[in-house]
Design a protein around this nucleic acid. Structure first.
Lengths: 196, 196
DNA sequence: CCTACCGATCGGTAGG
DNA sequence: CCTACCGATCGGTAGG
């Protein structure tokens, strides 16, 4: 997400550090971004960055978990009274919306997390598994309601759903109408490419 | 692809260098892999690596273009006498087969290419566009044959097909039956998740 | 948030 | 493929 200059000025140095770190990790990769690059983005000395963080990997962990928060929060807002099929359409909208509006954080969540180690890595993987389970549950509910076929393989269906949602970080652009794209993707997954 | 030790011994140093570079770039990322890491993998000194390459980025370019070769070659082997719908099923098999059997090269092709610069980057992007066009043509042929719906959005359909194929590098494992997974994916894309 | 500094490592070259 | 070496940069610390 692009942040206006006056908004950045009002943010705390710590928050600006996270913003810039997400952007640079997404653009150049975690290993392609130095602490000096982060300091330059903030207009301070490299050593001063360590007044705000314990180490570089701490930033990576924070951003990866911010990605977890964003994707889970988007699912939380789904209408509980909509049909399961409808909720799946809205889930695709929610997912693509996070990818589009928080592309930096989403890119770290999708790609750079692999450089995490220790407990932060375990926490990340747990959040990702939980997200996958939530999508799987929505699909299962769709089968139960009769909107999806009874012989649907939930594992493959979940992988397909998330493949469409996740790979979007490679081609989504600011000007893309994400709701339109999400509806088209869900319609494709639901109805298939063959004539009905 | 895992290479047997005796096979590695029979390969030229240059070829072993490419093998190890693909593996390390895929595992640790391009910026997370040093020339010293490559030298260690070969059991030689860092400076000796430069007897074989002009620079680190040259290896990245070579591996990324090897990915292009692998994906295009897999498509080349498609049966021309099969129906377009059947060719799409085989194209998904071909794509997943490359991802599974050349996971290192595929990972560089899918992820690490973004650290390419200059002409190598342009060549990569041209190959990727050409690959996307080949998939799009297969889909168009499917519409023409009547196997796919006439109102199919070829852009979204191509993105969906490649999303399933590309994201597979994150979850495919050696023991996965890729032909089975590819057939399941293509059946899902063709018939959809809703009952027919 | 600064100056000053640390040992280790970076990609790469010279010359054999 | 080696020894020896280059200047630049790495993540990080001490002490103010």
């Amino acid at each position: 997400m692009t942040i206006a200059t006056d908004t950045l000025r009002r943010m705390s140095t710590r928050d600006r550090l996270s913003q810039h770190a997400a952007r640079l990790f997404a653009e150049r990769g975690y290993h392609g971004t130095s602490v000096a690059d982060l300091a330059d983005a903030l207009g301070i000395r490299k050593s001063s960055v360590y007044s705000h963080i314990g180490g570089k990997e701490e930033l990576l962990a924070e951003i990866a978990l911010a990605g977890a928060d964003a994707f889970h929060a988007a699912l939380d807002e789904l209408q509980g009274d909509a049909s399961p099929g409808e909720r799946l359409r809205l889930a695709m909208r929610a997912h693509l919306s996070v990818v589009n509006h928080q592309l930096d954080v989403a890119t770290v969540w999708l790609q750079e997390w692999r450089y995490l180690s220790g407990p932060a890595r375990e926490r990340f993987l747990a959040e990702r598994r939980r997200y996958e389970q939530r999508i799987r549950t929505l699909l299962r509910d769709g089968v139960r309601s009769g909107e999806l076929r009874t012989d649907l393989d939930l594992g493959h269906a979940m992988l397909a759903f998330l493949s469409l949602g996740n790979w979007a970080y490679t081609w989504l652009r600011q000007e893309t109408n994400v709701d339109h794209a999400a509806d088209a993707f869900w319609a494709l997954l639901r109805d298939g490419m063959a004539p009905r």
